[in-house]
Amino acid sequence: MNGLYALKPWYAETLSGVRAALVRREVSPDALTLAGVVCAAGAAAALALLPFGWSAPPVAVLLAARLAFANLDGALARDTGRTSRRGALLNELGDRAADLVVLAGFLPLAPLWLVATAGLAATLPSWVSLAGAAAGAGRLNGGPVGKTERCALVVLAAASGWCTPILVTVAAGSALTACLRLARLWRELAADAPAEAAVPGGVR
């Protein structure tokens, strides 16, 4: 179920030198979160304004940077002892904003209802994971169409011009990912539920 998220440990190791440099320069983790949103906005602008094919390289570079910042902000906070509830809130809001901003790049290229549907569906896996974490379960990531896969699909759209099929795939794949996460959380939380105590006489 992890999909491309399974590559995260390798990716984090690849970025270890960058992370060390950021620690030395005392860069704020919050600044990296905001930088990820800016990169998402740049990718959306390139997708919307440049011809298909020509837009693929800048979209790919900017979305790779967006994923790097998403990886680095939390790691930098842990490395520097600057983890906080406010930072966790900003991180989640930044991730959701970046998801929606990227898909906004399709607005000139596809029907509004389809872009809106894909945007709503893209947020569902994260809301399910956050709900599970609030209930005491582990935070789930990855999936058939998680954050990394969505970025890859946007790059494919920039290269090919297949905007409608890509948005349909994002919407359907994200909904499937949310359902799979929910099913896994449901099983996990059911296993942890305390057994109901029997009351004499069959009265509960």
Rank of each mutant, 00 (worst) to 15 (best):
M1T: 08
N2G: 15
L4P: 09
Y5N: 04
Y5W: 11
L7F: 14
W10S: 11
E13L: 13
S16T: 11
V18D: 01
L22G: 02
V23D: 00
R24A: 15
R25K: 13
R25Q: 15
E26T: 09
S28P: 00
P29W: 12
D30T: 08
L32Q: 03
L32N: 00
L32A: 02
T33N: 07
T33H: 06
A35L: 15
A35C: 11
G36W: 08
A40G: 15
G42D: 04
A43K: 03
A43C: 05
A46H: 07
L49C: 14
F52P: 09
W54P: 00
W54H: 12
A56E: 05
A56S: 11
P58D: 02
A60P: 09
V61F: 13
L62A: 06
A65F: 14
A65K: 03
R66I: 00
R66L: 07
A68C: 07
A68L: 05
F69R: 01
A70E: 02
G74R: 07
A75V: 03
L76S: 00
R78Q: 13
R78C: 09
D79Q: 15
D79G: 12
T80Q: 06
G81W: 04
G81Y: 07
G81Q: 04
R82L: 14
T83G: 15
R86C: 07
A88D: 14
L90G: 04
N91Y: 02
L93P: 04
D95W: 11
D95Y: 10
D95M: 08
A98H: 06
L100H: 03
L100R: 07
A104T: 02
F106T: 03
P108Q: 11
P111R: 11
A116K: 01
A116E: 05
A118W: 06
L120P: 05
L120K: 00
A121G: 03
A122S: 15
A122C: 06
T123H: 01
T123P: 00
L124V: 04
P125W: 07
W127N: 01
V128I: 14
A133L: 13
A134Y: 08
A134L: 14
A135H: 13
R139F: 15
L140D: 00
N141T: 11
G143F: 11
P144V: 12
V145K: 05
V145S: 06
E149R: 05
R150H: 13
C151N: 05
L153V: 08
L153C: 08
V154C: 06
V154N: 01
V155M: 08
A159Y: 13
A159C: 13
S160V: 10
G161S: 12
T164F: 09
I166R: 02
V168H: 06
T169N: 03
A171P: 01
A171H: 01
A171Y: 02
A171I: 00
A172N: 04
A172F: 12
A172W: 10
A175E: 06
A175L: 15
T177W: 10
T177Q: 04
R181S: 00
A183T: 05
E188P: 08
L189N: 14
A190D: 15
A193R: 15
P194K: 10
A195W: 10
A195T: 13
A195D: 13
A197W: 06
A197N: 02
A198D: 10
A198E: 14
V199G: 01
V199D: 04
G201F: 06
G201P: 01
V203K: 10
